[in-house]
Simulated assay, not measured.
Amino acid sequence: MSFIRAVKSEAGLTYEDLALLGKASRATYQRAASGRTLPRLETVQEILTLCGRKNLVADSERATQLWRNARCALRGTQNLPLPRPQFIADEAGMSRALRDLHQWAGSPSAGAIEAMSGPHRVPHTTAHRIIQGYALPRSERVLKSFLLACAAPPNTWSAWSDAFDRVATARTRRQTVGRTYELVHRLHLFKAVRKLTAGTDHPL
Protein backbone atom coordinates (compact mmCIF):
# COMPACT_ATOMS: atom_id res chain seq x y z
CA MET A 1 0.00 0.00 0.00
CA SER A 2 1.52 3.31 -1.08
CA PHE A 3 0.11 5.07 1.99
CA ILE A 4 1.96 2.70 4.30
CA ARG A 5 5.19 3.08 2.34
CA ALA A 6 4.89 6.87 2.58
CA VAL A 7 4.29 6.70 6.33
CA LYS A 8 7.32 4.46 6.85
CA SER A 9 9.50 6.69 4.66
CA GLU A 10 8.49 9.85 6.54
CA ALA A 11 9.32 8.14 9.84
CA GLY A 12 12.77 7.17 8.53
CA LEU A 13 12.33 3.57 9.62
CA THR A 14 13.43 0.43 7.81
CA TYR A 15 11.59 -2.87 7.83
CA GLU A 16 14.26 -4.15 10.18
CA ASP A 17 13.46 -1.28 12.57
CA LEU A 18 9.76 -2.15 12.47
CA ALA A 19 10.55 -5.79 13.22
CA LEU A 20 12.64 -4.77 16.24
CA LEU A 21 9.97 -2.42 17.57
CA GLY A 22 6.83 -4.37 16.68
CA LYS A 23 5.26 -7.77 17.02
CA ALA A 24 5.67 -9.08 13.48
CA SER A 25 8.60 -10.07 11.29
CA ARG A 26 10.45 -7.95 8.74
CA ALA A 27 8.86 -9.97 5.93
CA THR A 28 5.36 -9.34 7.31
CA TYR A 29 5.83 -5.56 7.38
CA GLN A 30 7.45 -5.53 3.95
CA ARG A 31 4.62 -7.62 2.51
CA ALA A 32 2.04 -5.29 4.10
CA ALA A 33 3.57 -2.28 2.34
CA SER A 34 4.21 -4.01 -0.99
CA GLY A 35 0.66 -3.67 -2.33
CA ARG A 36 0.83 -7.17 -3.80
CA THR A 37 -1.44 -8.65 -1.13
CA LEU A 38 -3.95 -7.15 1.28
CA PRO A 39 -2.42 -7.13 4.77
CA ARG A 40 -4.31 -7.62 7.98
CA LEU A 41 -5.80 -4.36 9.22
CA GLU A 42 -4.17 -4.96 12.61
CA THR A 43 -0.75 -4.94 10.89
CA VAL A 44 -1.53 -1.68 9.11
CA GLN A 45 -2.61 -0.04 12.36
CA GLU A 46 0.52 -1.29 14.13
CA ILE A 47 2.78 0.23 11.47
CA LEU A 48 1.09 3.62 11.95
CA THR A 49 1.66 3.38 15.70
CA LEU A 50 5.30 2.32 15.34
CA CYS A 51 5.95 5.22 12.97
CA GLY A 52 4.81 7.67 15.65
CA ARG A 53 2.28 9.56 13.57
CA LYS A 54 1.29 12.93 15.03
CA ASN A 55 -2.21 12.68 13.58
CA LEU A 56 -2.61 9.02 14.45
CA VAL A 57 -6.42 9.11 14.67
CA ALA A 58 -6.85 10.77 11.27
CA ASP A 59 -4.21 8.55 9.65
CA SER A 60 -5.80 5.47 11.21
CA GLU A 61 -9.21 6.44 9.80
CA ARG A 62 -7.71 7.03 6.36
CA ALA A 63 -5.80 3.74 6.43
CA THR A 64 -8.93 1.89 7.55
CA GLN A 65 -10.96 3.37 4.70
CA LEU A 66 -8.27 2.51 2.15
CA TRP A 67 -8.06 -1.01 3.57
CA ARG A 68 -11.84 -1.39 3.46
CA ASN A 69 -12.02 -0.18 -0.16
CA ALA A 70 -9.31 -2.65 -1.14
CA ARG A 71 -11.06 -5.45 0.73
CA CYS A 72 -14.37 -4.74 -1.02
CA ALA A 73 -12.67 -4.63 -4.42
CA LEU A 74 -10.90 -7.90 -3.67
CA ARG A 75 -14.17 -9.53 -2.61
CA GLY A 76 -16.20 -7.96 -5.40
CA THR A 77 -18.71 -6.56 -2.90
CA GLN A 78 -18.40 -2.85 -3.71
CA ASN A 79 -21.68 -2.90 -5.65
CA LEU A 80 -23.76 -4.86 -3.14
CA PRO A 81 -26.89 -3.04 -1.91
CA LEU A 82 -26.82 -1.66 1.60
CA PRO A 83 -29.16 -3.54 4.01
CA ARG A 84 -32.35 -1.67 4.93
CA PRO A 85 -32.89 -2.01 8.70
CA GLN A 86 -36.33 -0.40 8.59
CA PHE A 87 -37.69 -3.73 7.32
CA ILE A 88 -36.27 -5.81 10.18
CA ALA A 89 -39.09 -7.32 12.25
CA ASP A 90 -37.56 -10.14 14.30
CA GLU A 91 -34.31 -11.77 15.46
CA ALA A 92 -33.88 -13.75 12.24
CA GLY A 93 -34.25 -10.57 10.19
CA MET A 94 -31.73 -8.72 12.36
CA SER A 95 -29.21 -11.54 12.06
CA ARG A 96 -29.61 -11.67 8.28
CA ALA A 97 -29.26 -7.89 7.94
CA LEU A 98 -26.10 -7.76 10.06
CA ARG A 99 -24.53 -10.54 8.00
CA ASP A 100 -25.51 -8.69 4.81
CA LEU A 101 -23.90 -5.54 6.22
CA HIS A 102 -20.75 -7.50 7.01
CA GLN A 103 -20.64 -8.79 3.43
CA TRP A 104 -21.30 -5.28 2.07
CA ALA A 105 -18.29 -4.08 4.08
CA GLY A 106 -16.03 -6.63 2.38
CA SER A 107 -16.42 -9.44 4.92
CA PRO A 108 -13.71 -8.27 7.33
CA SER A 109 -12.42 -10.86 9.77
CA ALA A 110 -13.57 -10.94 13.38
CA GLY A 111 -10.18 -9.54 14.37
CA ALA A 112 -10.53 -6.66 11.91
CA ILE A 113 -14.00 -5.88 13.26
CA GLU A 114 -12.55 -5.69 16.77
CA ALA A 115 -9.82 -3.33 15.51
CA MET A 116 -12.29 -1.08 13.66
CA SER A 117 -15.08 -0.96 16.25
CA GLY A 118 -13.91 2.17 18.04
CA PRO A 119 -13.49 2.89 21.75
CA HIS A 120 -16.16 0.36 22.79
CA ARG A 121 -14.51 -2.54 21.02
CA VAL A 122 -16.46 -5.61 19.97
CA PRO A 123 -14.40 -8.63 21.10
CA HIS A 124 -13.42 -10.81 18.16
CA THR A 125 -15.25 -13.74 19.74
CA THR A 126 -18.48 -11.72 19.81
CA ALA A 127 -17.89 -10.46 16.27
CA HIS A 128 -17.38 -14.05 15.08
CA ARG A 129 -20.70 -15.16 16.58
CA ILE A 130 -22.54 -12.22 14.97
CA ILE A 131 -21.10 -12.68 11.47
CA GLN A 132 -21.74 -16.44 11.63
CA GLY A 133 -25.36 -15.87 12.63
CA TYR A 134 -24.96 -17.53 16.03
CA ALA A 135 -25.78 -14.45 18.11
CA LEU A 136 -27.04 -10.88 18.03
CA PRO A 137 -25.50 -7.81 19.69
CA ARG A 138 -26.31 -7.94 23.41
CA SER A 139 -26.77 -4.18 23.67
CA GLU A 140 -27.28 -1.14 21.49
CA ARG A 141 -23.69 -0.09 22.25
CA VAL A 142 -22.38 -3.36 20.79
CA LEU A 143 -24.64 -2.86 17.78
CA LYS A 144 -23.28 0.65 17.16
CA SER A 145 -19.68 -0.54 17.49
CA PHE A 146 -20.42 -3.25 14.93
CA LEU A 147 -21.99 -0.64 12.61
CA LEU A 148 -18.87 1.50 12.97
CA ALA A 149 -16.60 -1.44 12.13
CA CYS A 150 -18.64 -2.20 9.01
CA ALA A 151 -18.74 1.47 7.93
CA ALA A 152 -22.53 1.66 7.97
CA PRO A 153 -23.48 5.20 6.85
CA PRO A 154 -24.20 7.39 9.91
CA ASN A 155 -27.58 8.39 8.51
CA THR A 156 -28.74 4.74 8.84
CA TRP A 157 -27.78 4.30 12.49
CA SER A 158 -31.11 5.53 13.87
CA ALA A 159 -32.95 2.99 11.70
CA TRP A 160 -30.68 0.25 13.07
CA SER A 161 -31.40 1.42 16.63
CA ASP A 162 -35.14 1.36 15.93
CA ALA A 163 -34.80 -2.16 14.55
CA PHE A 164 -32.88 -3.23 17.65
CA ASP A 165 -35.72 -1.89 19.83
CA ARG A 166 -38.36 -3.69 17.73
CA VAL A 167 -36.51 -6.98 18.03
CA ALA A 168 -36.07 -6.55 21.79
CA THR A 169 -39.77 -5.72 22.21
CA ALA A 170 -40.83 -8.71 20.13
CA ARG A 171 -38.53 -10.96 22.17
CA THR A 172 -39.96 -9.67 25.47
CA ARG A 173 -43.52 -10.11 24.20
CA ARG A 174 -42.79 -13.66 23.08
CA GLN A 175 -41.21 -14.52 26.43
CA THR A 176 -44.20 -13.03 28.28
CA VAL A 177 -46.64 -15.04 26.17
CA GLY A 178 -44.60 -18.17 26.80
CA ARG A 179 -44.61 -17.63 30.56
CA THR A 180 -48.33 -16.87 30.55
CA TYR A 181 -49.05 -20.05 28.61
CA GLU A 182 -46.98 -22.08 31.08
CA LEU A 183 -48.83 -20.60 34.08
CA VAL A 184 -52.25 -21.23 32.50
CA HIS A 185 -51.24 -24.78 31.60
CA ARG A 186 -50.13 -25.48 35.18
CA LEU A 187 -53.33 -23.98 36.56
CA HIS A 188 -55.51 -26.21 34.34
CA LEU A 189 -53.40 -29.22 35.28
CA PHE A 190 -53.76 -28.42 38.97
CA LYS A 191 -57.55 -28.07 38.64
CA ALA A 192 -57.77 -31.34 36.73
CA VAL A 193 -55.82 -33.18 39.43
CA ARG A 194 -57.99 -31.71 42.18
CA LYS A 195 -61.13 -32.74 40.31
CA LEU A 196 -59.87 -36.31 39.92
CA THR A 197 -58.87 -36.61 43.57
CA ALA A 198 -61.92 -34.83 45.02
CA GLY A 199 -63.77 -36.99 47.57
CA THR A 200 -61.06 -39.65 47.72
CA ASP A 201 -58.83 -40.54 50.64
CA HIS A 202 -55.60 -39.57 48.86
CA PRO A 203 -52.43 -40.46 50.80
CA LEU A 204 -51.01 -36.99 50.05
Rank of each mutant, 00 (worst) to 15 (best):
S2Q: 14
R5K: 15
K8F: 03
S9M: 13
G12F: 05
G12P: 05
L13V: 09
Y15C: 09
A19G: 05
A19N: 09
K23Y: 10
R26P: 08
Y29T: 09
Q30I: 04
A33D: 15
A33L: 14
S34D: 08
S34F: 12
R36C: 06
L38D: 12
L38I: 15
P39D: 09
E42G: 10
V44R: 01
V44F: 08
E46A: 03
I47F: 07
L48V: 10
L48G: 03
T49V: 11
K54F: 03
N55R: 13
D59C: 13
D59V: 05
S60Y: 07
S60D: 11
E61C: 08
E61W: 08
R62F: 08
A63G: 12
L66G: 00
R68N: 07
R68I: 13
N69H: 14
A73K: 08
T77G: 01
N79L: 13
L80E: 05
L80I: 02
P81C: 07
P85D: 03
D90F: 10
D90W: 09
A92Y: 06
G93Y: 10
G93C: 11
G93L: 13
S95K: 13
R96M: 10
R96D: 08
A97R: 00
D100V: 02
L101I: 01
L101D: 02
H102Q: 04
W104R: 01
S107K: 01
A110D: 02
G111Q: 05
I113P: 05
E114V: 03
G118T: 08
H120C: 08
R121L: 10
H124G: 06
T125H: 13
A127C: 03
H128C: 08
G133T: 08
G133W: 01
S139V: 05
V142G: 01
F146W: 00
A149E: 00
C150F: 09
A152V: 07
A152H: 04
P154Q: 04
N155P: 02
N155T: 11
W157A: 05
S158C: 03
S158P: 06
A159H: 15
S161Q: 15
A163L: 05
A163S: 12
F164P: 01
D165S: 11
D165T: 12
D165F: 06
R166W: 12
T169G: 04
T169S: 11
R174W: 01
R174L: 06
R179M: 04
T180A: 09
T180F: 02
T180L: 10
Y181E: 08
H185F: 03
L187M: 09
R194K: 12
K195L: 12
L196Y: 04
T197D: 10
T197S: 12
A198Q: 12
L204A: 15
